[in-house]
Design a protein around this nucleic acid. Structure first.
Lengths: 171, 171
DNA sequence: CAGCGCGGGTTTCCTTTGGGAACTCACTCG
DNA sequence: CGAGTGAGTTCCCAAAGGAAACCCGCGCTG
């Protein structure tokens, strides 16, 4: 399986991982998200090789997640900044952080977030967009969406059918 | 920078990425989360090499995210199942999926979720745990948490100070 | 005006990781 | 007896990643 095969998969998780699914890209994006916007600053903060940082930034720019903005010409110098798409992707970083806060730092995390609207330190939770209640694994069940393809993913189709059958028994 | 250096970083995102931060582990976890629980089924669904799958499963088990449960002895055969910690990590998969649903499938995703409590198809949103309002990037600002270390991450400290200063100007 | 430092890379070389495919082992089924 | 199944392991080769050096245009400093 080559690197190229991920984006072709009919799976939202796989396609998102094609953008940030390696050891460094998510951390690069984290730095940009909190305002570390220059090549050398990111490289110094993360300690990754300059070659790989160049590749990763180009990859993020290619996917429209980050933009490269010149802050001077002669010689050209650049800031890297989040786009709207990048801000959506930052929700993934938030989820990564929440998990790490809980399981790697035992609730005493290095970074906290203040919600400007209410002024409190906030640990966001996923909530149902219909009823507003928090959603945890087990509170919702997966089913075929509009673009599901049984032929392309028979193992997934089986798993979905089993889940549907199990829920029917309970209901 | 070696593979070993990630878990030592004082950063929740980095430590979580040490668990699922490569090309395959998140997809393996996704399969297990929807009930594809056996070695060959996962390997067949994802198409990754058996060697790498063996390594990734061992890694997930080491981190207590997944358990290996024998469903028969002689010869020993196993199911891989999510732990509580694994279910917390599944929130990251949910975030990955939401991004992919929106940006890679234009709102016609292959998998949808039915929220059992309210019966609706649900696209979970992150909400502040204090006021219950949705939180988007820009609605909250990062600041030093209990275990932040200025010496360890000077570039991050600078960025936090700049953000704090910018907010003060507005307020 | 020679030399130094900065920002943003590129190049070279070497190590590590990953993919493909075949092999193993312990059992079961026909 | 032979084929099939489930869960790995082994070997070899190609791709990706790390370290460190190099480059280039500029602006400052003595």
């Amino acid at each position: 399986m080559q690197r190229a095969s991920l984006p072709d998969q009919p799976c939202s998780v796989a396609r998102t991982l094609d953008i940030i699914g390696d050891r460094w890209t998510a951390l690069v994006l984290r730095d940009i998200a909190i305002g570390i916007s220059r090549f050398d600053a990111i490289q110094g903060d993360l300690g990754l090789s300059r070659k790989v940082l160049t590749q990763r930034l180009a990859h993020l720019v290619d996917h429209g997640v980050v933009v490269r903005v010149a802050y001077q010409d002669n010689p050209p110098r650049y800031d890297y900044r989040m786009t709207e798409k990048g801000n959506d992707l930052a929700m993934v970083l938030l989820a990564l952080q929440q998990f790490g806060d809980k399981w790697a730092f035992g609730g005493a995390p290095p970074i906290a977030w203040r919600h400007l609207a209410c002024g409190q330190i906030s640990t966001p939770v996923a909530c149902c967009d219909h009823c507003g209640e928090p959603v945890r694994p087990g509170d919702a069940i997966p089913l075929r969406g509009p673009s599901f393809d049984d032929q392309a993913a028979p193992a997934v189709a089986d798993a979905l059918d089993q889940i549907a059958a199990a829920v029917d028994v309970i209901v």
